[in-house]
Write a protein that binds this DNA or RNA. Sequence first.
DNA 1: CTGTTAGCGCATTCAA
DNA 2: TTGAATGCGCTAACAG
Lengths: 341, 341
Amino acid sequence: MSQNKEITIYDIAKSLNISPATVSRGLKDHPAINKDTKKKIIDAAQKMGYRHNTFASNLRRQRTNILGVIVPRLNSSFTSDVIAGMEKTANEAGFNLVISQSLETMKKEVANANTMFNNRVDGLLVSLAYDTTDIQHLENFINKNIPVIFFDRVYDHEKCPSIKIDNYKAAYEITAHLISQGCKKIAHITGNQLRNVYQDRFNGYKQALADHAIPLNEKHVFINDLSGKAGAETAEKILYMNDRPDGVFSANDTCAINCMQVLMKNGISIPQDIAFAGFNNDPTSTIIEPNLTSVNYKGFEMGEVAARILIGHLNNNYDLQLTHTLMLRHELIMRDSSLRK
Amino acid sequence: MSQNKEITIYDIAKSLNISPATVSRGLKDHPAINKDTKKKIIDAAQKMGYRHNTFASNLRRQRTNILGVIVPRLNSSFTSDVIAGMEKTANEAGFNLVISQSLETMKKEVANANTMFNNRVDGLLVSLAYDTTDIQHLENFINKNIPVIFFDRVYDHEKCPSIKIDNYKAAYEITAHLISQGCKKIAHITGNQLRNVYQDRFNGYKQALADHAIPLNEKHVFINDLSGKAGAETAEKILYMNDRPDGVFSANDTCAINCMQVLMKNGISIPQDIAFAGFNNDPTSTIIEPNLTSVNYKGFEMGEVAARILIGHLNNNYDLQLTHTLMLRHELIMRDSSLRK
DNA sequence: CTGTTAGCGCATTCAA
DNA sequence: TTGAATGCGCTAACAG
């Protein structure tokens, strides 16, 4: 096994007494190529230990076969599922993923987008940071017709498809569930209303209340960063309230769980005194006692779908505009934290 | 802003009436370049909207500036911390990461390694799958002098540095801690002894027992895949034992937590009846009640260090052989699950 | 300090 | 169905 010398199509060509162009064609699905020639080429390539040089190919074809991914953070259960799904799909289609995290700040998101731009990714998969206000930093891509696809935390833009779940409906369902369990004063913990996921969930919550003739109590709406810390702080607030809620719907599980922990430490019974529901079906939902009712949606599948749409577009198999918004399925998982009956 | 035409160094050269070579140098830290010329070049590049073409550069330099990463799975708290650390370091050094997961099987690990090889990564960062028996699939790299660095789940190979923590010592400490809390019959749950992390932890446990004159009870050693399910099954076994342990040291937190849950549901008090300790300091350690004593080690830092060593080597700043094994710090975090006094 | 030149490996146009 | 020729954009000798 030679250590240093890479085999090229020229080497194969020489050994077979044919032209490099033919070898290049033989290695692909080129239509105009004799079957036998093709087989000969592939066999020789195999035997000589040829490996395709992506970079030369990229340079020549003016494509990189790289998909850029920008996520708020890599180390969350949901995100890593998404990435795993993307990796699988991309891999199968011969694409590589370059992944970066915004750490929930627009500033780093902008920097990441610029790096991706310079790296000439063929397309971009984006889930927005907590505080991103606009997508100026993605205009470079859009202007150059480099496809940008949003997932989960999306942005409404004519040229960019979105893949998400029906957050409004899920929130409606989970709120209605709490009501069906006898809750009459349901608090809501949510995040920055710039992000569709939190806005939609808030709206679903409000509509469910309205439909059941329950007035919205503004004191029972908590807007924060949905961190564990924020959950604990919310619990403190609830403890000091005259008019305590008898149910809490938190827009994510982390926040719900930390809130529950503090409440329980202070003698509140869940679900008897206060019922709880979260969102995301984090693995922690089944560790907290009582187990947390939540909304499950498949990150892995979302990753697969997002990558598939992007790759399909790049391969000109179908048009981005056709899939402007894609809604994936979700499911409500009822657990002890909300079951009072 | 033109949509289609990319600016090249030739365009800049022409507009400045200098040679492309000078432009190429000006854009880098080339030593032999006039300061003013450099500034002129950088300004022009900026103004003209130049972006560096990595692929042409790669082709020419015969380097890809891509680091391959193979991990057992992306969606674990520890791994995603590691990846985040690698991403940060790589990014700062102008390298990209291509990440893939073996899903804990050697078969996929082999496939991933081959893909990486064909993608011509400049170096490889690997944490081995659960059942990997040998590293034949990495010989391609080693033969070609493409550096391979192991982290966490390492393999002893003369040419491949390893980055890990002192699993032996950590396990020794945590076992000694349980003993100090009055435990006299400490069980151990561990994984495939092919993996250094589990073997070392097992050895540390055994040595701690020996040093405290506690005989090893083989019935109290459980070898499984350390999944949550395995933890629950282990709990069932413990429940049916005549001679129940009064302490459990699990080689990871997931398994410990599921085991605790089942035991508690069956009336066992923790830590009074059975004290518990895990490993990894998973976020779930502070959600389970009582909170789980565990060993903390910084995945983010491990990722940073691994990437830094690899990049340092690639840039010929230092030699791989010098850092054959690098041991990072760990810390024992004592929580209620083990504190009986 | 700067310029000239050549070629990294491939895919494609055009011609045969 | 195949071949010849070209250039994608850059960098590194080498020469000045």
